[in-house]
Simulated assay, not measured.
Amino acid sequence: MEFAERLTALAAKVRQQKGQIETEEATKNAFIMPFISTILGYDVFNPLEVIPEFTADVGVKKGEKIDYAIMHGGTVQILIECKKSKEPLKIEHASQLYRYFAVTNARIAILTNGEVYQFFTDLDAPNRMDAKPFLVLDLGDIDETLLPELLKLTKDIFDLDSIISAAGELKYIGAIKRAIAAEFKEPEDDWVKFLTSKVYEGAYTQKVREQFTGLVTKATKQFLNDQVNDRLKAALGTPDFPMATDAELAASVTSEKPVEDDLNDNGIVTTPEELEGYNIVRAIVCGDVKPARVAQRDAKSYFAILLDDNNRKPIARLHFNREQKYLGLFDANKAETRFPISSLEEIYEHADALRTSVKAYLVEAS
């Protein structure tokens, strides 16, 4: 099994089991030890490779233990501090990592709850662990661009010099990406003001701020939709979706509402994952109907995919606002059946049912 496949398999296991994991020890056994063995490639039962409950006296503190120390070349190279899976990671959890980092040869420290792995080194000051990670691996949302760097930490390839040399760039690129993601989800005033200044020449008043906050949010969602669509087309190996007429395009675009409606979104947040699922469904049915006729409407409890933006012509519903995701499909009587899915790729397994629904609506209209 390839490296990326092993990581995907572990991520699926974490999604399925994390609701039942209550303690730190259970987190170690279920998630972290498999990560050390199947992803990093170290034998967790060989004390020459992995030392559990590693002890190193630190100043006046005697007998303190860190969860795991990974050995490579006969010396400690990686320290790992673990927290239970249901506990969000905080920098306060890394206090022991800070202390141990200064008294061992380790240049890499990992803070993890089994789902999120934060990797630290000593970029800011020699032999002193940085306050911010240079790499963050989230098994709930794997960033594939990080895999080559993660591979450098594995037993067979371990390349500390390459890791450290790339850490500075990774640290800031990762931080910038997370900052952009936060602005996309809920834009701050400075971000709104900056983008407004690019397109609006008038004074930036309170009324203008309120108006453009809604517009920036809407433009962001549409931009993400376009990016996902481009990636999907590339993955499908097709140069473009079939072209729609101007009239069809106009019919598929929701008219702009007053600013008050833009601001009053009732707490509905359309996620990139929902948009990617929408584009997968649209790609599946584009052989039967032009993509411009496949519309989407988000709601608090589900994301609806409709033909001709008509609630009486549901193609599918994405129930992604929970730990277990479901794809909702409709029969001839428009009764919905929910199918559990663990990844967006599983939508393709229901391609025939999706096409059948669209064809039924086309027959009704003829």
Rank of each mutant, 00 (worst) to 15 (best):
L307A: 11
L329K: 03
L344G: 06
L307I: 07
I305D: 03
Y326Q: 09
A295E: 00
R293L: 04
F339C: 01
N333R: 11
N279S: 09
A316C: 00
A283I: 00
I268T: 01
P272M: 11
I284R: 00
T271H: 02
I305Q: 05
I284L: 01
T271R: 07
R297V: 13
R282K: 14
I305T: 01
N321K: 15
R322K: 15
T270S: 10
Q324R: 14
T271G: 01
K313A: 15
R338D: 03
R322A: 15
R297W: 09
K313I: 09
T270Y: 04
K300Y: 05
R317Y: 01
P291N: 05
Y302M: 10
G287V: 07
Q324C: 07
G287N: 13
E274V: 08
L318H: 06
A335D: 13
E274S: 10
A332H: 07
A332K: 12
D331R: 07
R338K: 13
A304Q: 13
A295K: 04
C286S: 14
L327D: 08
T270H: 05
R312E: 15
E273R: 15
A283S: 12
N311S: 14
K300M: 06
G287P: 09
V294G: 05
N321A: 10
K300T: 04
N333K: 13
L306C: 13
P291W: 02
G267P: 07
N321R: 15
N266E: 14
L263M: 10
L344S: 07
I268A: 01
Y278E: 10
I268R: 03
I268K: 02
E336M: 12
F303K: 00
I268D: 00
R317V: 01
Q324F: 08
L275A: 05
V285N: 06
A332W: 05
A299Y: 11
N266C: 06
F339G: 00
K290Y: 11
K300D: 02
H319Y: 12
E336A: 06
K313E: 14
I268V: 11
Y326R: 08
N311A: 15
V281Y: 07
L306P: 11
R338C: 06
S343Y: 04
I284P: 00
S342P: 03
I341C: 08
R338I: 01
I315Q: 01
I341F: 02
K334L: 14
E274A: 12
D288H: 12
Y326F: 14
E273I: 15
D331I: 08
P272T: 11
N333L: 08
K325V: 02
I315H: 04
E336G: 02
Q296F: 14
F330S: 03
Y278F: 15
V269W: 00
E323Q: 10
I305F: 05
A292I: 05
K334E: 13
F330V: 04
G277Y: 10
D308W: 04
L344N: 07
